[in-house]
Design a protein around this nucleic acid. Structure first.
Lengths: 218, 218
DNA sequence: AGAAAAATATGAGATATCTCATATTATTGT
DNA sequence: ACAATAATATGAGATATCTCATATTTTTCT
C-alpha cells in the first residue's frame, strides 16, 4: 500500500469529490492511497485506523470460519465505505477485505475524525443509506442462496457478470461467492454447456441461449 | 392492531423511554400500538406509514420468494426498529413482518417526522449502530448456514434457545429460520435423539448431554 | 526462462437435503 | 364443544452438494 502525494493526491480528490458526504470540510484530513492487487486492506482481528472510501478498483469482503472454510460475503466496488462497522461499534475487524484489482481509496483517519463524523448528520445519513442497502443486498443474496439450487443462481450470476455475452469470472472466486464447492460449480457449468445455453471457450464461456438462461435465472 | 389511549399510552412511554434516541422531543408525535399474535405489522408491497420501535413481544421478518418458498430472515425482539430501511430509501416494503406473540410498539409517523428524523444526528447515529449490527448478525447467520450442515447449526440453536435445558421452539418456524425443509429438520432431531444428546418429551426436548451438543455447535 | 503457486479439470463415492404423500395430534376460533 | 386450522410425525425415493484424489494448464514471481 502506498500513500499518494501531490499532485496525484489532488487529482483523485478532484475526480472523486467526497465533500458532499459531509457537512464540514473533510479534504484536509484525507489521504489518498493505493493497494496492489491481492493486498489486504483489512485483516481479521486488528483495529482499523482509517475509514476508507473506495473510488477505483474491486475488492472482496470475506470471513474465515472455524472449520477453515471461507465465505465470500460480497464484492466491493466503487463507491463504497470500508471499515464503517468498526467505526460505529469500536470493534475489532471481523471480516477481511482483500483487493481483486489495483484499488484506490480515500482514507479518513479515525483517530482524528471520529468525533466529527459521529456527530455529522449529513455523513450519518449517507452512512445509514449505505448500511441499509448493504443489509438489503446481503440478505437478498443469502436468502436466495438458501432457496434456489445452484443452477438457478449460476444462471443469474452469468447474466449479470457477462460482458458482451462473454463470461470470464474465476471459478475459485465464484464458488466462494455462491457458497458451493469448486467441484459442484464445475458440474453445473458442464450441465449448462450440455444443455446448450453456454459454450466453453479458451478462457471463459459464451452465452448462446440467453433466453433459456434468463428463464432459469427467473 | 389498536392504538392505546391514556393512561396506558403514558405507561408505555414511561416504561420504555425513547427520547434519548433523539435530540428533539419526540414524545408528542408518538402513538403506542399493540398487535395481536399473528397480525402483520408490515405486508410486502405497501409503503409504511410509521417507523416502529418494538418494545415488547416478538415478531418475525421474512421474505416470500417467487418459487413460493419462505425465508425467515430474523426474529425481531425488543428493542428494535422496524421500517427504517423504507424510511431511508423511500421504498416499498420488501419484507413482511408478522408478530409471533402480542407485540407493543412505539409508532413514529413518517409523514410528520421524516424531515426531523433524517437531519437529527443523535437519531441517525443510533440508527447507524442498529443497522450495522443488523447487517453483522444477518451476514453471520447466513454464512454459517452455508458452511455448516444442519446438525451443527441445530445443536447451536438448541443451546441458545433452550430454557433450563428444555427446548420447545416450533419446528415450523425453526425450519424456515435455519433454511431447511421441515422434513430434514425432523431427521436431524431424530439423529440427535439417537445419539443421546437430547431426549424427546411430550412438548419439547430435554438436553441430556450438553457437552457433546456444545462440541457439535463448535 | 524456469520454478512455484494458483487455477482448471475430472472421476468416484458419500452425505445432506428435498419433494411428496399421508396420518396423527394439538391449537384456535366461534 | 366442535369444526377448522396448524403443527407434528414418518416413509420412500430423488437430487443437490460435498469430499477427496489426482492431473493438467495457466499465471506469477524471481
Amino acid at each position: 500500500m502506498q500513500y499518494l502525494v501531490e499532485p496525484l493526491r489532488n487529482y483523485y480528490l478532484t475526480k472523486y469529490p467526497i465533500e458532499t458526504l459531509f457537512s464540514f470540510p473533510i479534504t484536509p484530513y484525507i489521504q489518498v492511497c493505493q493497494f496492489e492487487r491481492g493486498e489486504f486492506i483489512f485483516k481479521e482481528g486488528s483495529y482499523p485506523e482509517y475509514l476508507y472510501y473506495l473510488v477505483e478498483g474491486k475488492a472482496k469482503l470475506y470471513v474465515t470460519h472455524e472449520n477453515g472454510k471461507v465465505s465470500l460475503i460480497n464484492f466491493l466496488q466503487a463507491p463504497t465505505f470500508m471499515g464503517e462497522i468498526e467505526l460505529l461499534n469500536e470493534e475489532r475487524i471481523s471480516k477481511a477485505i482483500q483487493t481483486v484489482t489495483k484499488v484506490t481509496c480515500l482514507a479518513i483517519p479515525i483517530h482524528t475524525c471520529k468525533e466529527k463524523l459521529l456527530t455529522d448528520a449529513t455523513f450519518l445519513r449517507q452512512l445509514c443509506i449505505f448500511l441499509s442497502q448493504k443489509a438489503t443486498t446481503i440478505s437478498a443474496k443469502y436468502t436466495e442462496n438458501q432457496v434456489y439450487p445452484l443452477i438457478n443462481r449460476l444462471a443469474a450470476f452469468i447474466l449479470v457478470s457477462a460482458d458482451h455475452d462473454f463470461y470470464k469470472e474465476k471459478h475459485t472466486e465464484v464458488c466462494e461467492y455462491l457458497g458451493v464447492s469448486y467441484r459442484h460449480l464445475l458440474h453445473v457449468f458442464a450441465k449448462l454447456c450440455e444443455e446448450g445455453m453456454i459454450k466453453k471457450q479458451s478462457r471463459g464461456f459464451m452465452i448462446v441461449d440467453r433466453f433459456r438462461l434468463q428463464q432459469l435465472a427467473k
